[in-house]
Design a protein around this nucleic acid. Structure first.
Length: 802
RNA sequence: GCCGGUGUGUUGGAACUGGCAGACGAGACGGACUCAAAAUCCGUUGUCCGCGAGGGCGUGUGGGUUCGAGUCCCACCACCGGCACCA
C-alpha cells in the first residue's frame, strides 16, 4: 500500500480542480441555487492566520455538501483591499499602496489555495480595482441624489496618530480602533450618510432574517429604539424648550432642566441671559474634552446655571432653574432634558452637587441615599392627578393629558447616528463630487466614473486634517460638469466600509461594465443563503451593508429587502496559552507550517474538530496530530477492503446513523460532533475487521467536505466512477437508524441499579414483566411497596418504592 | 451600571425535548511489536471507601421544583464579549 503523503495528494487535486473549473458556479439558472458567503479578507502584510481558515472551511463544508446535494453553488472570494494598514505600510516603506496591495493579494491567494477551499476563483474581485470602485462611487452618487449623503460641520473623533477621522463605531474605549491612540474631538466638515433614515426598517426587518440571536440583539441595542414623549416647557420671554423623556409619569418630580452646552437655545435666549460669558466659557471647556475625558469624568458632574432665564413645569406650574451641562448630549433627543433627580442617577448626582431639590414621585426607594431607578412596578406619589397609579398606567394617563393640552407629542428616538463617511486619507475610493463656487456640490457624471486615484509620489497624511489628495493640485482642479467653470474635486475618500457594503452583489456578475450587476443575475442569486463572519462586524459592516442593500432595494436595483437570509458567527482561535494570538505575544501559529507538517486536510479537520464553532478555543498542536492520525486510519482502511457493492450488514445501522448525524450536524454548524461520529464509525469498522466498497463510498462522501483531497484520492484509488466532488450525497433510511434491541437503564427511586436489554418497541407491561424476571433487580424492591413506575421508551425504567 | 454569553475529568470538548454525565479527541500510565526508538496495536484512566461483589460523592456556589436536574426556577460568584451620561 502506498503511504499517505498529503503534499502529493493535495497539490495533485488542487491542480485538477483548477484545470476543470470544478467549483465555478454554473450559469444554468434552471438549477436551484445556493449562495454561501464568507467575509472577504483584508489582504494584510502579515499573511494568513490560523483564524482565517476556521470560517472559510466551515462554509466550504456547507458549499461542498450543497454541490453534492445537487445545488448550483456560488462560494466566491475577493479582497477588501482599501484601508489604513496598507497605506501606513506604503508610507513607511515608500512603496505605492497599489503595489503593496498587489503583493499581499498574491501571497494571500497562494495561502488560501493551499487550503483546498472550493472558492470560485473565476469571480475574484478587488475593491481597489477601478472597475470595481466605479460602482462603489456610483452607489454613493445615488445616495447623494436621493438626499442621503450630506456634508456637515461637526465635531468628529480624530485619531492624532493615524491622522484620520473615525466613525463612532471605530472608537473603542475612547481610543482608535486600529492604533489605540487617544481620540480627540475636532471640528471638521464631513460627508455623512443618513443611515438613521433606515433605523426603523433596519430594526424591524431583523424579524425577516435568520441571524443568530446575539447578532440580532447587538444590532437591536445599537439601533437603540425608545418610545417616549417630547414635552414643552415654557420659559422666560414666552419661549419654550422642548425636551424628550421616556418617563412622562415623573414630570411632577422634575425640579430643574438641563440643556446641552452646544444647544442653539443659548443663542436664542441671549437677550435674557445674564451670565453669557460663563456659559460660553463652559461650552469651550466641554468641547475640548476628549472622548476619554468625557467618559472618565462621567461621575463628576459639571455645569453652569443659566442666570436670568427660568422654566415652568407644565404639570404644576412651578418655576424651575435651567442649567447647561455636558452630561446632556446634543446628538440625542432634543438636546434638552427635564431632570428628575429622585429617579435618575445622573440627575441625582447633579442635584446633590448643586443643592437642588429631590422629590420622590415613585414610592419604594430611599431617595436620600440614591436615585430610585428600579421603578417598573412602582406606585406614583406626590404627583397630583396621577397619584396612586402604577407606573405603566400613569404613563398612559399623563401622556394622553399632555397631548390633549398640546404640551406633548409621542416620539420615538434611536441611538443610531448618521454614518461619518469621509476619510482624510489616500488609499480609499475618491468621493465623486466636485465643488463649484457657483453651482455648489456637483456629482461627477456617470460616464466619467470611476474617478481614479491620482498616481502620486507623496500620499502622507497631513497634520492639518486635510486629505493628502488636497496637495495634488492637477487632480483637484477641474471644471464644473454643470457650468463648465472652475471647480475643485472633493479630496476626502470613502471609509473602508464602503467597498464591503455591496461586494456580495458584484460576485453575481463580476465583469459587468454596464451595471453593478445584471438584474438577471441578482434575481437569481439573491439573497445570500448563508453568510458567516465575525461578531466584531455586527454594528459596522453588517449594519452598513444592510443599509446600502435596503437603499438599492428602494431604487429597484436589488430584488430583496435584506441581503443575507442567514448570518452566523465563528469564535476566535486563541494561542496554546489561551491568550489572544498576536505577534507581540509570540503565540502565533502559521497555517503554512501546519500544512507543511500535517497537510491541509488535517488542518481543516482540526479547525472543525477543535470545539464549538461559535466559541473561542485555544490551539493545540497535539490535537492536530490526533486528526492526522484519524486520516491515516481512513487511508489504511484499504488494507481491509472487500470488493463488494453491498453495505456490510453488521455496520448498516451504524452507517445510516452516521449519515444522519453528519448530514444534520453540518447544517447546524456542529462540525465537531459530525467528525466525532465519523471517527466512531471508523473505530467500529476496525473492530469489525473489514469494509466494503459500498461502505467506503458513503464514508468518503461524508468526509469529503471536511478533508476533500484525501477523500478524492481514495475515491480514485478505489476505482469509483468520476470525481468525488461530482458525486451524490448519501441519504439515510430512518428505519435503519433505529436499533431493534436497546439497552435501557433500570432505576430504583431514581438511582441506576442495572440495565436491561429490551426490544425497542416494548410496552410498559413487557418491560415490567422482564424486570420481574430479573432476580437481582427485583431484590432491590423486596418487601417494599411500589408507588409509581415510569417507563421512558428506549431510555429508562424507574420504579419508585417506599 | 446595562445587554448578551460561558462555567462539565489532567485537557479540548460530548450529552435529543428533563431520562445511565464524561461520546470523540489529546495527555498520562501499563502492555505487545522492536536490538532500540518512532509509528502502530491492545488495555486502564472523574473521585473516595472496599481484597471483592459493591457502595458513597461528583457538571462554579447555595436553595428549590421533579420519580429523575449539567439541562427548569430563585439567589449568588467568577470569567469573556458588547454598550455606556442615550434622558
Amino acid at each position: 500500500m502506498k503511504q499517505y503523503s498529503p503534499k502529493n495528494v493535495e497539490s495533485k487535486w488542487q491542480q485538477i480542480w483548477e484545470e476543470k473549473g470544478a467549483f465555478h458556479a454554473s450559469n444554468d439558472k434552471d438549477k436551484e441555487k445556493y449562495y454561501a458567503l464568507i467575509e472577504f479578507p483584508y489582504p494584510s502584510g502579515e499573511g494568513l492566520h490560523v483564524g482565517h481558515p476556521r470560517p472559510y472551511t466551515a462554509l466550504d463544508i456547507i458549499a461542498r455538501k450543497r454541490r453534492l446535494q445537487g445545488y448550483n453553488v456560488l462560494y466566491p472570494i475577493g479582497w477588501d483591499a482599501f484601508g489604513l494598514p496598507t497605506e501606513n505600510y506604503a508610507v513607511q516603506n515608500k512603496i505605492h499602496p497599489a503595489t503593496v496591495t498587489k503583493n499581499n493579494v498574491v501571497r494571500f491567494k497562494k495561502q488560501l489555495q493551499m487550503l483546498g477551499l472550493s472558492f470560485d476563483w473565476s469571480r475574484e474581485i478587488n475593491t481597489t480595482d477601478p472597475k470595481y470602485y466605479k460602482w462603489t462611487q456610483w452607489i454613493f452618487l445615488k445616495l447623494y441624489e436621493k438626499g442621503l449623503a450630506y456634508k456637515t460641520e461637526m465635531a468628529i473623533n480624530w485619531c492624532p496618530s493615524c491622522k484620520i477621522g473615525l466613525a463612532n463605531e471605530e472608537v473603542v474605549n475612547g481610543g482608535c480602533e486600529r492604533c489605540g491612540a487617544e481620540v480627540v474631538r475636532r471640528q471638521k466638515s464631513q460627508w455623512m450618510l443618513k443611515i438613521t433614515e433606515y433605523a426603523e426598517r433596519l430594526l424591524n426587518d431583523l424579524d425577516l432574517v435568520d441571524y443568530i440571536d446575539r447578532v440580532k440583539i447587538q444590532q437591536t441595542n445599537w439601533i437603540g429604539r425608545s418610545e417616549g414623549m417630547e414635552v414643552d416647557f415654557e420659559i422666560t420671554g414666552g419661549k419654550k424648550i422642548t425636551i424628550y423623556t421616556t418617563r412622562p409619569d415623573t414630570l411632577f418630580g422634575a425640579t430643574y432642566m438641563v440643556i446641552s452646552p452646544e444647544h442653539p437655545y443659548i443663542e436664542e435666549l441671549a437677550d435674557y441671559i445674564e451670565n453669557m460669558d460663563e456659559l460660553i466659557n463652559y461650552k469651550e471647556e466641554a468641547s475640548k474634552k476628549s472622548e476619554f475625558e468625557r467618559t472618565e469624568l462621567a461621575k463628576d458632574k459639571t455645569g453652569v446655571k443659566i442666570e436670568g432665564v427660568e422654566a415652568t413645569n407644565p404639570v404644576n406650574g412651578q418655576s424651575i432653574p435651567i442649567f447647561i451641562s455636558d452630561y446632556v448630549l446634543m446628538s440625542y433627543g432634543t438636546g434638552a432634558i427635564m431632570a428628575v433627580p429622585g429617579h435618575d442617577t445622573r440627575d441625582w448626582e447633579f442635584a446633590k452637587k448643586f443643592g437642588l431639590p429631590i422629590i420622590e414621585v415613585v414610592a419604594g426607594g430611599n431617595i436620600e441615599e440614591a436615585a430610585y431607578t428600579d421603578t417598573e412596578e412602582g406606585i406614583i406619589v406626590n404627583s397630583g392627578f396621577i397619584n396612586g397609579l402604577e407606573v405603566k398606567d400613569a404613563i398612559a394617563k399623563i401622556s394622553k393629558w399632555l397631548e390633549k393640552k398640546g404640551l406633548g407629542t409621542p416620539k420615538v428616538n434611536y441611538k443610531l447616528r448618521d454614518w461619518v463617511f469621509s476619510r482624510q486619507r489616500y488609499w480609499g475610493e475618491p468621493i465623486p463630487l466636485v465643488y463649484c463656487k457657483d453651482c455648489g456640490w456637483v456629482p461627477v457624471p456617470e460616464d466619467e466614473l470611476p474617478v481614479r486615484l491620482p498616481e502620486v509620489e507623496s500620499y502622507e497624511p497631513t497634520d492639518s486634517g486635510e486629505s493628502p489628495l488636497a496637495n495634488v493640485r492637477e487632480w483637484v482642479e477641474t471644471t464644473c460638469p454643470k457650468c463648465g467653470g472652475y471647480a475643485e474635486r472633493e479630496t476626502d475618500t470613502m471609509p473602508n466600509w464602503a467597498g464591503s457594503s455591496w461586494y456580495f452583489l458584484r460576485y453575481t456578475d463580476p465583469y459587468n461594465d454596464e451595471e453593478l450587476a445584471s438584474k438577471e443575475n441578482l434575481d437569481y442569486w439573491l439573497p445570500v443563503n448563508w453568510y458567516n463572519g465575525g461578531m466584531e462586524h455586527t454594528t459596522l459592516h453588517l449594519l452598513y451593508s444592510r443599509f446600502w442593500h435596503k437603499f438599492l432595494y428602494d431604487c429597484g436595483i436589488v430584488p430583496t429587502s435584506e441581503p443575507y437570509a442567514k448570518r452566523t458567527s465563528h469564535g476566535m482561535i486563541l494561542g496554546e496559552n489561551n491568550d489572544k494570538m498576536s505577534k507581540s505575544r509570540g503565540n502565533v501559529i502559521n497555517p503554512d507550517e501546519v500544512i507543511d507538517e500535517f497537510g491541509a486536510d488535517t488542518l481543516r479537520m482540526y479547525e472543525m474538530f477543535i470545539g464549538d464553532f461559535e466559541k473561542s478555543v485555544p490551539w493545540s498542536q497535539d490535537g492536530v496530530r490526533g486528526c492526522r492520525r484519524f486520516l491515516e486510519r481512513v487511508w489504511r482502511l484499504q488494507e481491509m477492503l472487500v470488493d463488494s457493492d453491498k453495505i456490510t450488514s453488521k455496520l448498516e445501522g451504524n452507517i445510516h446513523k452516521t449519515i444522519k448525524k453528519v448530514s444534520e450536524d453540518y447544517d447546524h454548524m456542529k462540525f465537531n460532533t459530525a467528525i466525532a461520529s465519523m471517527m466512531t464509525l471508523v473505530n467500529d469498522i476496525y473492530d469489525y475487521g473489514s469494509v466494503t466498497k459500498a461502505d467506503m463510498r458513503i464514508l468518503l462522501t461524508l468526509l469529503n467536505p471536511v478533508s476533500p483531497h484525501i477523500t478524492e484520492e481514495l475515491w480514485q484509488m478505489l476505482g469509483f466512477e468520476g470525481m468525488l466532488y461530482e458525486a451524490v450525497w448519501p441519504e439515510w433510511d430512518e428505519a435503519k437508524t433505529i436499533d431493534d434491541v436497546v439497552e435501557i437503564a433500570v432505576q430504583i427511586n431514581g438511582r441506576v441499579k442495572g440495565q436491561m436489554m429490551i426490544s425497542a418497541d416494548a410496552t410498559a407491561e413487557q418491560v415490567k414483566e422482564q424486570f420481574s424476571g430479573d432476580e437481582r433487580l427485583v431484590g432491590f424492591i423486596e418487601g417494599k411497596q411500589i408507588i409509581k413506575e415510569i417507563y421512558v421508551p428506549g431510555r429508562i425504567y424507574n420504579v419508585v418504592v417506599k
